[in-house]
Amino acid sequence: MGMPLRQSLRVGGYVLKNKLARRDRFPLLLELEPLFACNLACAGCGKIQHPADVLKQRMPVEQALAAVRECGAPMVSIAGGEPLMHPKIGELVGELVRMRRYVFLCTNAALIPRKIDRFEPSPYFAWAVHIDGLRERHDASVCKDGVFDEAVAAIRMCKERGFRVTTNTTVFNTDTPQTVIEVLNYLNDDLGVDQMMISPAYAYEKAPDQEHFLGVQETRSLFQKAFANGNRKRWRFNHSPLFLDFLEGKVDFPCTAWAIPSYSLKGWQRPCYLMDDGYAETYRELLEDTDWDAYGRGRDPRCANCMARRSSMTAPIAAVRASASSTRPGSSETPKHSSRETPSAATARGAPGASGTTG
């Protein structure tokens, strides 16, 4: 199962409109980071390693809305840091819903009981709760006991109040196919979340823990085994089937970093998300002044360390591009199996699939 029908139609129509307009690059999901501060300090997170003065900053609501309008993406993933620490997060989400953007609020869920009254259920809004495993594994991942139970209680509260709830599970090399199966079974069958996202962990250079990111073959083997025996079809994923094929190593896609621009307190981040290539002042500057061909399979050698960071939402674009190219005379641009054997970073975001994780 992929995204809800209404959302699929909206996003599909948006992609088709841009393809008919012959736009080669266009945003699909905006990664919005209105703060960097977090109430947890996860060992695998590289997003909270900022000076104290930066961690105290909060993006004004109008600045965030202006970025959404400037970008024009139909989906917005609000990440951080922990977005619920923003004093006007409810106002920001409400305005985005009124703009008919599909909003995913990425959270560790600890603050949901205190902040839930600031939100209203809507087909345009979903919580994206960070769940890295069952109790022991999740609490170890976030480096604090009791967080798993708080998150489960918060998910139940949200479901009781009529909210759509998705989850985001990040996998490390300490996981096994069985631990992945166990947590997805629990979320799917016992907790009854609407949809789930899963991905290998980002290889953040500034993350305290650098020992547990998955390599390419480890990633493929883990997901091949976890998805076997009909599990992949049974679980309610908020992923394109193309992305799941990608995780299993069945297919490869060109990097489409332009599809998920990131806007934070520092401005428009130049790709990719894991590299420190500076910021652009405007979205147009980001789009027009970036050497996009240097990324992915391009000339930048740092990209050799990337396998799975590409979001589930960029895979359909890559597939559309490949399909369109294959219909042109002399075209040979088709998805290829990757032969790279370097360590992987991963798509912890996603929105929707691509929503960013919060620690």
Rank of each mutant, 00 (worst) to 15 (best):
D145R: 15
A153D: 08
D149Y: 05
D139W: 02
C158V: 10
R114E: 15
I131C: 08
E136Q: 04
A151S: 14
A126G: 03
I116F: 11
A126P: 01
F148P: 02
P121S: 13
M157A: 15
H138P: 00
E150D: 13
I116E: 15
I112V: 11
A128W: 00
N108R: 08
V129P: 02
H138I: 03
H138N: 02
F119C: 03
P121G: 12
F119E: 05
R114K: 11
E160A: 10
R135T: 08
I116Q: 11
E160V: 05
F148S: 11
R137W: 02
N108L: 07
R114D: 14
A109P: 02
I155G: 06
A126I: 00
S122H: 12
E160S: 12
F125M: 04
V142Y: 03
F119G: 03
S122N: 08
V142A: 09
Y124K: 02
A128D: 06
I131N: 01
M157R: 15
R161W: 13
Y124Q: 02
R137E: 02
E150H: 06
G162R: 03
A151I: 07
P113N: 11
A140Q: 04
R161D: 11
R118V: 00
I112C: 00
I155M: 13
F148W: 14
D139T: 03
D139P: 03
H130R: 07
V129N: 01
L134G: 13
R137H: 04
H130M: 12
R114P: 00
R161N: 15
L134H: 06
A154N: 05
R118L: 11
K159W: 05
P113F: 13
A151Y: 01
A140M: 04
R161P: 12
E136Y: 03
A109I: 11
D132F: 08
R118A: 03
N108V: 08
K115A: 03
A153Q: 15
D139S: 08
R114H: 11
I131P: 05
G146D: 14
C143L: 14
A153W: 10
I155H: 05
P113E: 09
H130F: 04
A126Y: 00
A140R: 09
R135K: 14
G146F: 05
R114N: 06
V152R: 08
R161C: 09
A151W: 04
F125G: 04
P113G: 03
H138A: 00
C143Y: 06
A154T: 11
V147Q: 12
R161Q: 13
K159F: 06
D149K: 07
P113C: 09
K159Q: 13
A109T: 08
I116T: 13
K115Y: 09
P121E: 10
D132Y: 08
A153R: 15
V142W: 02
S122Q: 12
G133D: 05
S122E: 10
